[in-house]
Structures are given as C-alpha cells and as structure tokens.
Amino acid sequence: METKVQRSNTFVEEICAIPGGERIRDCIQCGTCSASCPNAGRMDHTPRMLIAMARAGMREEVLSSNAMWFCASCYLCTVRCPRDVKPTELMHALECLAVSRRLSSERTRTPTMYRSFSDFVYSIGSVPEVGFMMWFYLLSNPLRALRMAPLALTLLKHGRMSVKARRLKPEAERQLRAILDKAEVLGGMS
C-alpha cells in the first residue's frame, strides 16, 4: 500500500513540474472535459479518466495511452472546466512527457505526424505542406501516400500545391537553429 501511494505522488509531481500540468490537482472529476471533447469517443481513456489514472499513479498506462494524441486542441474543455484545470494544456504536457520518456502510443500515427512537422521547423524554420506530408508518410506508412494521390492532383490543378519551400535568409535560419540548440541544452521544462 505504501509503495502505491509513493508511486502515485511521484507521477503527479512529475506532471505538476511541467508548465500546464500543475492544475491536475484541482480536478474534481466532474467529467465536463470528456462531455465537451469532440474526440473522446476515439480515445482509449476519456480525459476525465486519464486525469484519474494519472492521480492514481498509473504512469505507464497514462503515458502510453492514445488519448492525448486525439486532442485536436479545440480548447472547448478548457473554457468550460469549472476548476480551471486547462485540460488542453494538460494533454500537451502529457504528450511532451510521453515523447521525452519514449512512451508514445503505438495506436495512433499522430506522434509521428507531429514529429515530422517539428523536424521541418527545426531544420528550415518553415513547414512546406507537401514536404511535410511526404516526410510523414515516409516515416509512418509510405503506401498511404498513394491513396492521397488523387487529392494531391486536385490541389495541383487548382494551384494550391507549391513544392517549393519558403526559406529564411541563411543568417536567420542559423539564428533560429542556434536558439533551438540552446533550448535543447537547457533541456526540458522543469
């Protein structure tokens, strides 16, 4: 029993140490977040349940859940939460925690998509839609790219697909990367 309590406290403290995570203690389990969430039905655990599990110390289960990866950041739960828990930011905090502890769920492609996006931000400071999507398909399921071909063709026909990426001036690109490298050295959020 004692170990369980110990374990629980550790995980909640870990979450509270991340900006956006600290309000998890204020949750009263009313379920407004789950009822407001457009994607709760697709999550393995609803937002309310995920918060309960986190506070029960179920670290592994929470961090390998697909729930936070189905959050579309619509912030409906956030404006409705009677305790100002800010569940959207809590989801972001859990995502970051899962990524940094390499525990992201395998039941969703969203972490890979987010990673593909971030790779472009880091390397060139802008996200060319075509390049980013190709990179994502390569990292996740190259065959899916084929299924997207008709859509790509339609976009091309309407002049809405530019292959060329926007580039910053070289010194600006270097400046951004230096800033991000320093952020990496400063490490983590807490």
Binding site: E95, P111, M113, Y114, S118, Y122, V127, L176, I179
Partner: peptide, 25 residues
Amino acid sequence: EDWNCCGSTPYTSVDELASLCTSAR
C-alpha cells in the same frame, strides 16, 4: 522580416521549450 513558423500545436506537443523559443523569436 524573416519570421519563422510559429511551431503550431505539433511542436508544442513534442518539445514545449523548443516550441516556445520558436514562437518567441
């Protein structure tokens, strides 16, 4: 001049500090 991508929700969800720095630039 020479703005960079805001980082959007994807960056926020994988590396919070880096995403804040991206946006703060």
